[in-house]
Design a binder for these strands. Structure first.
Lengths: 413, 413
DNA sequence: AGTATTTTTTCGAGGCTCGAAAAAATAGAG
DNA sequence: CTCTATTTTTTCGAGCCTCGAAAAAATACT
């Protein structure tokens, strides 16, 4: 059962609250923070003075438009970029990229690299990942000790504890404990995150107005994935990660899915499925990789003439619609962001999708459901990993922070 | 965003923690509470002394087996039954029942009543509900002022805020704001709860070992409903309540469902659907009410001979299996309790159900998923309502408790 | 009757937040 | 150019709350 609140938890939580308020708001004044957190001015003053002394926050004098007002001008508080840094590692099909991000969220170094993930043996794949990270650590321009955490993102299934990649479409390898590997190699905490979850995290930061409490990010790419945010928090299953939205059953016994089962949503809406249908191949045809350029060409053809290509997208829309409908039968409708190559063809998908949703229990609100599209998933995944890692750092800097508040026994003027 | 923790919240939360520890454990000693909550002995001592003075808890001297140990015997703490009471109102098909439950959870009065819910006009239905509650209030044996809260349970859809019945299979009436009606009539807080959710709540109390953090309660009755507990908390959608599990699409364009759509799980697994298939009626045949006795007879016949009856249960199992499979694609597998008349025929349903699950993404763990059955849903719903209401009371008694802790400035010996 | 053992209470110390008041920093008025 | 109004931030004392240690209480064993 949940545990009682100790006296010292109080400060810790309120410190966290202040940090998160600053991260969200950008350059809030102490007064603003007091307003959003509901804590008193005195408390905010005390906490932020601590955080500044510890080098976590910095004061940034002029907030420009402040000069319009009468009284004492507000002092903006910002995250100190030098407080610490995090590293992101994103492994996608034939592509590996790392970035170093300072505490304020700015990219300060990056490296990208092509490699053949599909044929690479286990040791080599792991070796490439650790090597690219090591190169960042050995960068003379970078203060190595300042990197506090690594977040790695990958397409596929990860375990709930964000420790290992269990399965991924980009390689035939399974069960690689990347988090443990990176931690062992570099001695700093690491997590292994699912790509769609990171897309959702990134959307929450990009547009907090729209993507706040409940929303869905769906990856329309070779495979179909989903990141789900409920009540403002990433929702992962109880055991493994990443709602396996793409493998909900659309038609029992239906088309062959990459996962080996039949009738999954993905077997109708994944790139390979759309390709298969557009080429009028059998639904049992072995899934093949289709390049992004080919998919774009396919979409163009579907827009031009009402042939099998258009029908393929219609089928994809139908499958996605029934999947979403089933989802909306369990959780209520929420805004949806479509991400990935096929999101660029969402105009072809949407009509059938909406029609399908309207036939389901979630359909009552089908009109009110709104869709966004974002054709490029990689930047989102990187951003999500960065924010994820920074979020962890926020939570960890204040935890030992209570002890770390050495010296400064009393606030000195 | 979430709000900072004030200093006085601390006591309030820890009081709540103590109360909930006592409600869960039955007769825990102060030492036990300290262990489960993680708070210090001094704190528990102070809080429980407050709670006893306020009449919320009582000391109950001998804990019997305690005499085996050496030192000072433990003093059990229990909920004071007289602290307050709650009332439950359960409205089901042609049946209305109320009960008064003391703070310790014992039923101290009840009344049940048959009525024709299906044809009853709106005013009359509401009138019957308020009248039966009023009769309890007018009971001379009962201290009226002690009833602190009403929880009403109903089959069907309720709004997220637990205020109104939006739709129910037991009546053609819709959108009855029962919570507001009861509050207006009797001046005490009331909520309108969904039956399946209450079943889940009750299971959590009946068998906390098995039904702790994540589990599912499925109602197999005329309709199909679901109550879902995730991370120890009732999971309701974001807008309306009660995952509409029964109306997930099993076969697009398939059998006619009571809801008017086609292919829902319920259109294969609801009592009327099983009946329809067993009688080899059309899948488009209008849903009809089937009595419990008829359903039991049908199950008996299905067990005897391998005819259309057995096939009907097989189809029900298949639909439920695919529904559960889709569910398990989103949240990971969890124990399932089957409740309601058809749960008594679960032996007929289970084989096809497991086979279907095995074909879905959740199927990897299909072997490990375990099912319980409970043919009688009404007692569960009543129990759930009672615990729900008491839970609210627990949360409300401590909130004003901080102010209400009048007099007793210091702990007196 | 005395000792060991376990539970519960008491007591002082240390922290934290709060409200009120003071201090700081600026724009506008005369 | 000085004074006043206004707004933000800090300071200070008060009031709670939790904690650890020690004391008190209550029983079983010797």
């Amino acid at each position: 059962m949940s545990v009682g609140i100790r006296h010292d938890d109080l400060r810790r939580r309120n410190r966290a609250m202040v940090i998160s308020a600053v991260r969200r708001a950008g350059q809030p004044s102490r007064t603003e923070i007091a307003a959003t957190t509901g804590l008193s001015h005195s408390t905010i003053s005390a906490i932020s003075s601590d955080l500044i002394q510890e080098g976590i926050l910095t004061e940034s004098k002029p907030s420009e438009a402040a000069s319009l007002k009468r009284g004492r001008p507000q002092v903006g508080l910002g995250l100190n970029p030098e407080a610490t840094a995090v590293m992101t590692v994103v492994l996608s099909l034939n592509f590996l990229s790392v970035a170093v991000i300072d505490y304020a969220g700015q990219v300060i170094a990056e490296e990208q690299r092509r490699l053949d993930t599909q044929t690479m043996p286990r040791d080599e794949l792991i070796g490439e990942c650790t090597a690219i990270v090591r190169r960042r650590f050995e960068d003379p321009d970078l203060d190595v000790r300042s990197v506090a955490r690594i977040a790695m993102g990958i397409q596929g299934i990860t375990d709930t504890h964000a420790r290992a990649m269990l399965w991924s479409p980009i390689t035939s390898l399974t069960d690689i404990p990347f988090a443990d590997i990176l931690e062992g190699e570099f001695g700093i905490p690491a997590t292994m995150e699912n790509d769609c979850n990171m897309m959702a995290v990134a959307l929450q930061w990009r547009d907090p107005e729209r993507y706040r409490d409940d929303f869905i990010a769906i990856l329309l790419s070779h495979g179909i994935g989903m990141g789900l945010v409920l009540k403002g928090e990433l929702f992962t299953g109880t055991h493994s990660s990443g709602g396996e939205f793409g493998h909900m059953i659309h038609r029992p016994g239906g088309a062959l899915c990459r996962c080996g089962r039949r009738g999954c949503v993905e077997a109708y809406a994944g790139n390979y499925a759309i390709w298969r249908n557009a080429r009028m191949m059998s639904e049992d045809a072995e899934p093949t990789d289709v390049g992004d350029a080919d998919m774009r060409a396919l979409a163009a053809r579907a827009r031009e003439t009402d042939g099998p290509e258009r029908e393929a997208y219609r089928k994809a829309g139908e499958a996605l619609g029934f999947g979403l409908g089933s989802l909306f039968a369990l959780i209520d409708p929420a805004p949806v962001a479509m991400v990935g190559v096929s999101a660029a063809a969402f105009d072809l998908i949407e009509p059938a999708l909406r029609e399908a949703i309207a036939q389901t229990a979630g359909g009552q609100h089908s009109k009110s459901i709104s869709f966004d599209t974002e054709p490029n998933e990689l930047p989102l995944i990187r951003e999500g990993c960065a924010m994820r890692a920074l979020g962890f750092v926020d939570q960890e800097i204040f935890a030992p922070g209570v002890q770390a508040r050495a010296g400064a026994g009393k606030n000195v003027a």
